[in-house]
Design a protein around this nucleic acid. Structure first.
Lengths: 200, 200
DNA sequence: CATAAATTTGAACCTTGAGTCAAATTTATA
DNA sequence: TATAAATTTGACTCAAGGTTCAAATTTATG
């Protein structure tokens, strides 16, 4: 029964292919975050995977696709976090829990939210920005809920959100795996500071 | 007396030259912030000034110099702000006033703190980062002072600073001159949120 | 007006790096 | 082992964009 065999992950060609493609994207995403999209060549990406530039094109159609996919991967993770059911009394508590996860996700994955969206051509760029907007909207809605239930103080919800989301983005710029601070420490700190800034 | 004449700004060649050079740098800095360093060509920069690519090289030795100088220009402004004497009782009050000015400066000037430092070669990059570090240190020191005088709550001062400085950087990414929000509105909002996040 | 200095330009040059492709190599299957 | 499919490679093409430079143009000065 070859059918049974092909279903076993390590022997399934499609699965292997997809896994390698992901490896390409994630490895590149890390490099993009550290050095920047344009300061990372296809040769760089290939070398860090023990491959040749040409081999990358077996998994990917262009450098732009890598950038595109790396953004989508990050947003997929954020969507995932946003989906997690958190039963907390006030909206502020939910928001704090979400934010905590965001910080950990970003430090762990090494992803960034702002790496060169402008280097994408019109269509993928629009998609990525739409994705970002959707997420922002959800967070803004949560803040508004908090303002209604009295846990979050008044003010332009959009601005309140942009403030602490900025901290998240800047994080990718300075965070260093090898540094002294663990992801959890930072997450605790940031979540606390975020909460304090919003508390009614 | 040509001496007197040459001192008159509009007729002084050196002054004119310096002014035009600044125009090149500031115009480019704005484009870098909006589109990114690598998505802005020398032709783009020249066109937006009504010049030709080649003419730029009369004022500047390389594209890299433009990036370098645009960073230095921003940090010079921040240094200026940091120098302003602010007599407030607690360190937290001083910090809030400073932060308010930072926000206004960044929205007005259209400068950014994070545009492609990595695209600079070793020496200028080191200089820019050193400059940034110096500024960060001063702010961290102020936070520590606030923790001592009891106005700012405890916690890793470095992290506290990175949090609200992130909001500042992210600002450059989304702020739009043409948008509905005035610089002052944003500054008020951000300063308040910053303060709330730090208050003991 | 004539001359020199300052400023700008068009037309090249040159390097970098993305993308292509036919051939080589590795891996799976019978 | 022989064959086919999957994977990888070396060598090449090609375009984009930064940089140079001698000549043209503009501006200031005597």
């Amino acid at each position: 029964m070859t059918a049974a065999l092909t279903e076993m992950t390590p022997f399934n060609r499609d699965v292997q292919y997809a896994a390698k493609k992901q490896a390409v994207i994630l490895s590149a995403a890390g490099a993009f975050r550290r050095r920047g999209y344009h300061n990372t060549s296809m040769v760089d990406i290939a070398k860090s995977l023990g491959l040749t530039k040409a081999a990358l094109y077996y998994y990917v159609s262009s450098k732009e696709e890598i950038l595109h996919q790396s953004h989508l991967a990050t947003y997929a993770q954020m969507d995932e976090i946003l989906k997690t059911r958190i039963d907390a009394p006030a909206a502020l508590d939910k928001l704090e829990a979400l934010y905590h996860r965001f910080v950990i996700m970003l430090t762990r994955s090494g992803a960034s939210l702002l790496t060169d969206v402008n280097s994408l051509s019109a269509e993928p760029k629009a998609e990525v920005l739409a994705r970002r907007t959707t997420i922002e909207r959800k967070i803004i809605a949560l803040v508004k809920a908090g303002q209604k239930d009295g846990s979050i103080r008044t003010g332009d919800a959009r601005l309140l959100v942009f403030f602490f989301m900025g901290a998240l983005n800047w994080l990718s710029a300075w965070y260093d795996d090898a540094g002294p601070m663990g992801a959890d420490d930072i997450a605790d700190h940031f979540a606390a500071q975020m909460r304090a800034g919003l508390t009614a």
